[in-house]
């Protein structure tokens, strides 16, 4: 591995560790570093750390990492720098499921409070299947343009469904809006357990196709000629990316900008090679969302801002600055 890549990985890991520590230590109650292993001296700090802050930080990290790696994969697959995990309409599917749960005050037996994320994931899964089969119906080779347009159609339709429920709702309005703006607060370890298997499977699926993504940058035909089984690989990448997106949205709501900004920043700093891009996006996506969540819960204490607002506030200017600088120096 080249020196510059070693630097990239070590920088990203250090940033992530620092973010995690900041995420668990800062807040209304101070948590010193020793609390990590020492439960005796400060039992209340210990329980805050492991019971409240750590699950929140881990969940934020997993959601950010999932969105970022899915964004990197979708951008590469669709050869479109403006693609993000929400392009294919999968997040809208998850949102419809979640909003419907709130709107109809659904609560399934046994799983109880986890009804919302579960229905959200089911919504994401159904949407993914519909988008893929509809796109396949139009053209069997699954061209990128077809996929993007199909995604736009589904997003618009599902967006209308959400708007309809918002328009008809009464007392749940605030609950629906705050969910849509995204949050990782008050979720706890069960949510982490729920999202974890999907994250693992999705990341493995994408990581196995890192070199295929590199080849597919040159077009489907060229990729095929390079020996890539384009159709199967495309399905694998779509399935992996959708799984990550659906899971992330289902547990935390629609958090914008992470899937767009993180892969872009990573690409600008360390290049387009997906062998590194996917992993680096994963690490930096986690860091970004942990820090954004930290800001969202500390900036106007004791109340909290929706995390989606923070990601947009931080993401947009940073993105603009890098974009501007890069275009200037290169152009």
């Amino acid at each position: 591995m080249k020196k510059s890549m070693m630097f990239a990985y070590s920088t990203s890991i250090i940033i992530l560790l620092v973010s995690i520590w900041l995420g668990v230590s800062i807040g209304s109650a101070n948590v010193p570093l020793s609390t990590l292993w020492d439960s005796e001296t400060n039992p209340s700090a210990y329980s805050i750390l492991w019971g409240i802050r750590m699950p929140r930080v881990v969940l934020a990290g997993l959601v950010g990492a999932s969105l970022a790696i899915a964004g990197a994969a979708f951008q590469g697959l669709l050869k479109n720098p403006l693609a993000d995990p929400y392009t294919l309409g999968i997040s809208s599917g998850a949102s419809v499921g979640a909003v419907a749960t709130i709107f109809f005050s659904l609560s399934l037996p046994i799983i109880g409070v986890y009804t919302l994320p579960l229905i959200g994931m089911i919504g994401a899964f159904i949407t993914m299947m519909l988008v893929l089969s509809f796109a396949r119906l139009i053209d069997r080779t699954l061209k990128m343009e077809t996929l993007i347009l199909t995604g736009v159609i589904f997003s618009s339709f599902l967006g209308a469904c959400i708007s309809l429920m918002i328009a008809l709702t009464g007392q749940q309005l605030r609950e629906i809006t705050s969910w849509l703006l995204g949050s990782v607060s008050m979720r706890g370890w069960p949510y982490v357990q729920m999202i974890l298997p999907f994250v693992v499977i999705g990341v493995v699926l994408l990581w196995l196709n890192r070199r295929e993504l590199n080849a597919m940058m040159y077009g489907d035909e060229r990729a095929q000629a390079l020996g890539v089984n384009v159709k199967n690989r495309k399905y694998a990448i779509l399935a992996g990316g959708s799984m990550l997106t659906g899971a992330a949205v289902a547990v935390s709501g629609t958090i914008g900008f992470v899937g767009l900004v993180v892969p872009h920043m990573t690409r600008m700093l360390w290049g387009t090679d997906h062998r590194h891009l996917l992993t680096l996006s994963f690490l930096n996506g986690a860091s970004l969302l942990i820090l954004c969540d930290l800001v969202s819960r500390t900036i106007i204490t004791p109340s909290e801002l929706p995390i989606g607002v923070i990601t947009a506030f931080i993401g947009a200017p940073v993105f603009s600055y890098i974009f501007f600088k890069q275009r200037r120096s290169r152009g």
Binding site: Q75, G76, K79, N80, P81, R211, N214, A215, M217, Y218, L226, G227, V228, R267, G271, T272, D273
Partner: peptide, 17 residues
């Protein structure tokens, strides 16, 4: 291509098969 790669990266993709 939508994303920029270096000449070496581009040529290296040829080794995929």
């Amino acid at each position: 291509t939508a994303f920029s790669s270096t000449v070496r990266e581009t040529v290296s993709i040829g080794r995929y098969p």
